[in-house]
């Protein structure tokens, strides 16, 4: 009933309620599981257990705050991801309404893909896609 009412009042957001319910349930399950571990499991102190695991050798020193340094290649991949993710995001609405847009949409999306393709070719040529 709650859903029916809410969908009458605000038809856009009411349909997202099951998603919220699912989120709450999954979160409850995950938090419960994560908290269950230390409560149920044993706890026997051993200094070696609390060192970073490096196959038995002395752990390499870590920075005080956070983990170690991140190789720059990963940043490059992340930026490329953003580039192409945005392309993807623009392709989806086009794909939904391609038939409505007709020839105009066709030309526009070709120009768009050509633009991204140009950037893609540039990155490829400069070796941005090579992994070393």
């Amino acid at each position: 009933m709650l859903v029916a009412q809410s969908s009458d009042v605000s038809s856009d957001l009411g349909i997202y309620l099951p998603l919220v319910v699912m989120f709450a349930l999954a979160a409850a399950f995950a938090v419960f599981s994560a908290l269950l571990g230390p409560l149920v499991g044993p706890s026997r102190y051993n200094r070696a257990k609390f060192q970073a695991y490096e196959c038995g050798i002395e752990p390499s020193p870590q920075p005080v705050v956070g983990g170690g340094r991140v190789p720059v290649a990963y940043y490059l991949t992340a930026m490329l991801f953003i580039l192409f993710d945005i392309e993807m995001v623009f392709l989806y609405p086009f794909a939904v309404s391609a038939d409505v847009l007709g020839l105009f949409g066709l030309v526009e999306i070709f120009l768009f893909i050509a633009t991204v393709g140009f950037a893609y070719a540039y990155v490829w040529r400069r070796g941005g896609l090579d992994w070393n």
Partner: peptide
């Protein structure tokens, strides 16, 4: 990142990429 250990850091980055 939060593990504060080299292997997980690399593994996490690789996985993300």
């Amino acid at each position: 990142w939060a593990s504060g250990s080299p292997y997980p850091l690399l593994g996490g980055l690789r996985s993300a990429a």
